[in-house]
Design a protein around this nucleic acid. Structure first.
Length: 480
DNA sequence: ATGTAC
């Protein structure tokens, strides 16, 4: 496939490269990262470029790797009038996302208690495949979670009023309709609120060491200081969102025949955004997105309780505010400029993060000047990043950047190279206390199975799309 | 990612 170099960090596959491409594909990567990408990424991103109503470019971020239909690390915006919505462009784990909590605690206060913290967090936050929460919700309550997300949590005692504005969409996307969610999804979701899940989902205690703060004044504006302890939560909508995705993939299979949509890969199943099927999926997707925001909210409430127990102080007195909460797998209606005209678009981000620049109306007052905080999860061994969005992101990538490191190795390949207990031992030697429900899961998530997070983050920094604020080093990890 | 298959 012909790949044109646009700059040191942007590569383009022309629309002439494949029959049916409506727009070119653009890949953000260094030459090294580009060469490391699997060929499936190029096949998939050019398939996405063929979908009806796609605008400007089909994008792949530097953490891109092959996924279901669309690459993970993909961004695609479709016309609201004559474009489509596709579950493959959002991901099975709807609103899988990342939340960062700050504290007033320093490394010297937290380090002596880290084993105690990790043990208690592990006991308090259910993790692993099929994990069930400690809450008993009625169907009516789960429907309230679907409609009202974090608002339901705060009213039910799981959080603070001021948490709301520090979450994308205030933790509640309007237009969610539980009547569009199957009984099966409800029965799977009913016991899953407040649970971490498995795979790459985790809860991590991290440190902002002085050498890792890249922009001191920006860090201060986001509530970050030298040698501070912070907590990162990575999880999504569990089996609930997964079921919503599966249900609508089947519905879209027949809907495509009805609307005469032909796709290059069955995994690209989609429906016109304005069709009844497309609208139903969007309403169900919002239910799962609100459930995921609520899931992270309940987990954060629990971890505030754990910190309170260990440090014998109220969470408010330890400054345990949310820095921000971002969605990594979602579609949203957003206004962006296309060919000099403001248009409402259906922006699909799958393994990609919104990174709006300063001034956007969607940002809360506290971040209107800084730009949107962006939380990037690395592998459990190598650390994570807090970034901010830029003006350039708005004109270049529909206000989007990467979401994490991206895998370089399959789970099966990682398990062949190392055992879970070897990884656990190695991490302890590196100063990271880890506790997991699954030893094979630990092996699958080994740092070497992922791209170098700094290289990925630097790519988007050099491209001018997102700016580094701080790198966060893990000291304790709870993994599903 | 996922009651790792209907």
């Amino acid at each position: 496939m012909e790949i044109k170099k646009i700059s040191d960090y942007i590569w383009e596959i022309p629309a002439t490269e494949k029959e049916g491409m409506r727009v070119p594909a653009r890949i953000y990567a260094t030459e090294k990262l580009l060469h490391e990408m699997d060929s499936g990424v190029f096949e998939q991103i050019t398939n996405v470029a063929c979908l009806p109503g796609i605008q400007k470019y089909a994008y792949c971020m530097p953490d891109g790797h092959q996924g279901y239909g669309f690459p993970i690390g993909g961004v695609a915006a479709f016309s609201k009038e004559d474009g489509v919505i596709s579950p493959g462009g959002i991901g099975f784990d709807i609103n899988c996302g990342m939340r960062l909590i700050r504290t007033d605690l320093t490394v010297s206060e937290v380090l002596p208690r880290i084993r105690e913290l990790v043990d208690l967090l592990f006991k308090t936050v259910p993790a692993g495949v099929g994990s069930k929460g400690l809450m008993k919700l009625s169907v009516e309550e789960l429907k309230q979670v679907m409609i009202r997300g974090v608002d339901w949590c705060i009213e039910s005692g799981f959080g603070w009023e001021r948490d709301r504005e520090r979450i994308e969409e205030n933790g509640r996307i309007s237009g969610a309709d539980p009547s569009k969610v199957s009984e099966k999804a409800i029965s799977r979701g009913i016991s899953q609120l407040g649970t971490l899940g498995s795979g790459n989902h985790y809860l991590e205690v991290q440190i902002a060491t002085p050498e890792n703060i890249f922009d001191k004044s920006m860090a201060k504006a986001l509530g970050i200081f030298e040698n501070q302890a912070v907590i990162m939560v990575h999880c999504g909508s569990r089996g609930f969102g997964h079921q919503v995705g599966s249900d609508y993939l089947r519905i879209f299979d027949t809907a495509m025949k009805k609307y005469g949509i032909v796709v290059r890969d069955r995994e690209l199943a989609c429906a016109p955004f304005n069709s009844p099927e497309g609208q139903d999926y969007f309403k169900a997707m919002k239910c799962a997105a609100n459930m995921a925001f609520a899931n992270r909210q309940v987990i954060v409430h629990r971890l505030r309780e754990v910190f309170s127990e260990v440090f014998r102080r109220e969470p408010e007195d330890m400054g345990m505010d949310i820095v921000y909460d971002v969605a990594h797998n979602i579609a949203k209606i957003e206004t962006h400029e296309v060919d000099g005209v403001e248009k409402e678009l259906v922006v699909h981000r799958k393994g990609s993060t919104r990174c709006f620049g300063p001034g956007r109306a969607e940002l809360p007052e506290i971040y209107r000047k800084t730009g949107q905080p962006v939380i990037i999860g690395g592998s459990m061994e190598t650390g994570s990043y807090l970034l901010v969005g830029t003006e350039k992101a708005m004109s270049e990538t529909f206000g989007s950047t990467m979401h994490g490191s991206g895998r370089t190795m399959s789970r099966a390949a990682a398990k062949k190279k190392v055992t879970g207990s070897e990884i656990k031992k190695k991490m302890e030697e590196e100063g990271i206390i880890v506790k997991s429900t699954s030893m094979t899961g630990l092996a699958e998530e080994a740092g070497f199975a992922y791209k170098n997070i700094s290289e990925v983050v630097d790519t988007m920094e050099m491209a001018g799309v997102s700016r580094k604020v701080v790198r966060l080093k893990p000291i304790g990890n709870i993994k599903g």
